[in-house]
Design a binder for these strands. Structure first.
Lengths: 231, 231
DNA sequence: TCCTTCGCTTGATAAATGTCAAGTCGCCGA
DNA sequence: TCGGCGACTTGACATTTATCAAGCGAAGGA
C-alpha cells in the first residue's frame, strides 16, 4: 500500500483522533484512485461499498426523479461524502460524478462500520461531521422555501464574495450547474443575473463584480442562520 | 428528582446503551415539563440551553425570514430535537412550538456535550440519530426540488396511506401547516386537492379517502429514495 | 483558418404558484 | 340558540418560473 496518502488521511479531522490500530485497519483495505472529469462515481439507490474522500478536484452530488435532475451539493477537498449512507448501510440518496480531474480515496464501508462500532473517538468525529452536513442541508432547505430565485442568487453571490474576500470573483461552477443548485432553470438564472444589475452586480462570462455590496445586501437580506456555512 | 420519566428516557435508543453513571449525570440536571398548545419552546438564532425530548404531544419546527415563515418538520413522540445544535453548541436553525399539549423532557446542553465527549456508546447512538435526520432532510430537499406542488401532495398522501395502512385516514395536521410543510400556500393546497380528484382522492374536511391507489401512484411516482422515511 | 459544438442568452409564450378579496362552513363560547 | 371567530375555499388577477425556439459567441478539432 502506498504511503503517499496515509498522512493526508490521518490529518483529516474525521480520522485525526482515532486509535492507531483502527486507523491501520481502515488504511489496509483502502486505496486511492484518479478519475477524469465527468465520471460517475456512485448512483443513487446503490448500496455503499466505499466511503469516499475527495483529496483533490471536485465532485457533484445530484439526484434524479422522473426525468428531472437537480444538483444538491459540490464536494471539495478535503472532505468525505456519503458518510451517513455508509454508517447506516442504507442506499445512497444521491449520485456523484467528478466535475474535474479528481483524486479520491476509497475506504471499504464495512471496515468503516466495524471501526465505528469500536472506536469512540471516531464516532465523535463522525458526529461532528454529520452535524455539519445536517445543518448545511437545513440551511439549504430554508433558502429554498423562504426565498425567491432572485433572492437565492443574490445571497449566493454575497456568500461567494465573503468566501473569496473580494468584490470581484469567478463563479466556481458552470452557470447551468449553479442554476440547478439554486433550484431554477439556466434561462431563469440568466434573467436573474440581469435582474440583479440594478443592485450593482456586473456579469461578464463567469466573472462577477459586485459594485455596491450594501445595496445588494439590502435586497438579499442575508442571515447567518441561512448563509453562514461555517456553523 | 421524580423517577417517573427516568425509565422512559432510558428506553430511548439514544440513551439505551450508554454508561449508567453517565446516564445518571444527564438525569441529575434534567426535568420534565408540560406545555399547553401553541407555546414557543425555542427561537432560531438562540444558543442551545437544553436538549428537548418529546414524550407526548407534538412539536412544530419552523423558520422565518423576511416576514415569511415555513414549517420544516413535526416532531412526534418519542424523539429529540435540536440535537445537532446542542452537540455543536451552535445557534438553533429552527424555532419550535408545541402543536398540542405536550410533555417534554429537558436535558442541559452542557451535560449532553460533556457526556458525549466521554461516552462512546452515546456518541454512536447520536450518529445513528443524526444520520436518520440528515437523510430525512436530504429526501425533503429532493422532494422540493424535483417535484411540483401537486406531485408533492400526491406523494404525501401515499405516504400517509402507507403509514396508516388504510385507504381512508385523517390528516394529522391543519391544512395550513400541511401547505407550509409542502412548500405552498393554503390556497394552492386547496386547489391541489381538487387537482387530485381525477386520480381518486376524496376530501371531506381533514378526512381523506383514496379510491384508486394505483391511479394515484401512477401520477405520483413515489420512490423509496424520497418517500421511504424509515431508511 | 474554418467549422462544429456547446453553453449561454434572448424573446415569446405557457404553466405554476402566489396574492388579494370575498365568501362559506363548522366550532365554540356567551 | 345565536353570534362570531378562524380555517378553509373560491374566484380574479398578478407574479414567478418554466418551456420552446432561435440565435450568439467562445473553445477546440480538423
Amino acid at each position: 500500500m502506498p504511503e503517499s496518502y496515509r498522512q493526508e488521511v490521518r490529518d483529516l479531522a474525521l480520522f485525526a483522533d482515532m486509535d492507531q490500530g483502527h486507523f491501520e485497519t481502515l488504511m489496509r483495505g483502502s486505496y486511492v484512485q484518479n478519475f477524469p472529469p465527468r465520471i460517475d462515481l456512485i448512483t443513487e439507490g446503490d448500496t455503499p461499498d466505499f466511503l469516499h474522500v475527495v483529496m483533490s478536484g471536485s465532485v457533484d452530488l445530484f439526484s434524479s426523479w422522473n426525468g428531472r435532475e437537480t444538483s444538491l451539493a459540490t464536494v471539495r477537498p478535503v472532505s468525505t461524502f456519503i458518510l451517513a449512507a455508509t454508517i447506516k448501510d442504507a442506499p445512497y440518496l444521491m449520485s456523484a460524478r467528478t466535475l474535474e480531474k479528481s483524486r479520491i480515496i476509497l475506504l471499504p464501508s464495512e471496515d468503516v462500520r466495524n471501526v465505528f462500532e469500536k472506536d469512540g473517538a471516531f464516532a465523535r468525529a463522525i458526529v461532528t461531521e454529520l452535524s455539519q452536513c445536517y445543518r448545511a442541508v437545513v440551511k439549504n432547505t430554508k433558502d429554498l422555501k423562504l426565498r425567491t430565485s432572485l433572492e437565492r442568487l443574490a445571497n449566493y453571490l454575497l456568500r461567494q464574495r465573503w468566501r473569496t474576500g473580494s468584490d470581484a470573483f469567478d463563479l466556481t461552477m458552470e452557470k447551468r450547474r449553479l442554476a440547478s443548485f439554486l433550484g431554477m432553470t439556466p434561462e431563469n438564472l440568466s434573467r436573474a443575473f440581469k435582474g440583479l444589475e440594478p443592485y450593482g452586480v456586473r456579469v461578464h462570462g463567469n466573472h462577477i463584480k459586485i459594485t455596491d455590496t450594501e445595496d445588494l445586501a439590502r435586497f438579499a437580506k442575508p442571515t447567518p442562520l441561512i448563509d453562514d456555512h461555517s456553523t
